[in-house]
Design a protein around this nucleic acid. Structure first.
Lengths: 143, 143
DNA sequence: GTAACTGCAAACGCTTTGCACCAAG
DNA sequence: CTTGGTGCAAAGCGTTTGCAGTTAC
């Protein structure tokens, strides 16, 4: 859903943050991207808008965005340095293992499974976390 | 499933690894544990069996065990430094957010969901990854 | 004017690498 | 004897922190 960046600025503003050029650039980089981005990826992208930007500001803005639930981490086999726009409600991440494209999909259907698991294990289940890996349309055609 | 450590040694041996004291200690620490362990956790536990053990050997053994599919990473919100015994087949991880207890459960039921997602997104789905968080029986009673 | 934000440099912590020695097979 | 494994120390790298100057509001 493009065009939601106005909301992000509004949310940031409402939580007492100032809308500086470096922060704007970082936000734009993440809102515009359909891929999971590492801090350095964000840095590189945002530097085009704001050449003086420092990596530190990227980290600090990412932290704030994660705190506000606007951005979430992507966990890959080799680490969890990726960030994408956060899912709303019961959405989950689908990631292309070739190009890194990230898509959200609905996954409400898990509750029945959790009820069974809860009964069998005695756990009180609070949250879950599903990531699916595969090849996107474009990358399938290439191979 | 306790008592599977014999298999691990056999598998290691068959893939050309030598069964040294440090390696044995690291393997024992992981086989015995029902919790996700960080490299340092493993280090501490394994040092009881093998006092001269170095952290480096823990890293190197973990790498080998992951390579052989005997151990898998646990991804938590703040990082992915945890290791537990790997799941067999279609099992998934259930983790207690209080004590770190890790339990495996069957989760075959996801295929229908993936078929729908695949149809909707054009992705070819290769693998998935489900982790569930909650409180285990013991930790529920405590609170 | 005030408090939040900035970039820089230094500090930090976890992980990896180089190396000489050791031990399993 | 060969080759893989070991511990140590140092290097590496991504992230965090301290700080003085800057800027949104």
């Amino acid at each position: 859903m493009p065009g939601t960046d106005g909301n992000w600025f509004e949310i940031l503003h409402k939580s007492g943050c100032r809308l500086t050029a470096p922060r704007r650039a970082v936000v734009e980089a993440l809102v515009d991207s359909l891929h999971a981005l590492t801090p350095v990826d964000v840095f590189d992208a945002a530097r085009k808008d704001c050449p003086g930007l420092g990596l530190v500001s990227v980290y600090r803005t990412l932290e704030k965005l994660e705190e506000l639930g606007l951005v979430q981490r992507v966990h890959l086999t080799r680490g969890c340095q990726g960030f994408v726009r956060a899912a709303n409600g019961h959405q989950h991440l689908l990631i292309c293992t070739n190009c890194g494209k990230a898509v959200l999909f609905e996954g409400d259907k898990l509750e029945p499974l959790f009820n069974i698991v809860s009964k069998n294990t005695g756990f009180q289940i609070d949250s879950h976390w599903l990531q699916v890996f595969g090849l996107c349309n474009a990358c399938r055609s290439d191979s």
